[in-house]
């Protein structure tokens, strides 16, 4: 149970870091904003799927 709580907390921190990173890239005009947010959405979906799958396996 504690493992899942820790995993979710770390994942939320990773997703927050991703938002900071994307906003920084947009601010400095490194890549177009839609491309960056699309990339973020893809990575975030992967992270959420990984967390859900691992939590289900660990708790079952």
């Amino acid at each position: 149970m504690w493992y899942v709580v820790g995993l979710v907390a770390v994942s939320v921190a990773v997703l927050a870091f991703g938002v900071w990173f994307v906003r920084r890239e947009i601010r400095d005009q490194v890549s177009p904003a839609p491309l960056l947010w699309a990339g973020y959405a893809a990575v975030a979906a992967l992270v959420v799927f990984g967390v859900l799958r691992t939590s289900w396996v660990v708790l079952s």
């Binding site: 493992y3 995993l7 990773v14 992270v47 990984g50 691992t54 396996v57």
Partner: peptide, 9 residues
């Protein structure tokens, strides 16, 4: 990250 999740889980 996936390796870390695998090892720690």
């Amino acid at each position: 990250c996936s390796f870390l999740i695998g090892i720690t889980s």
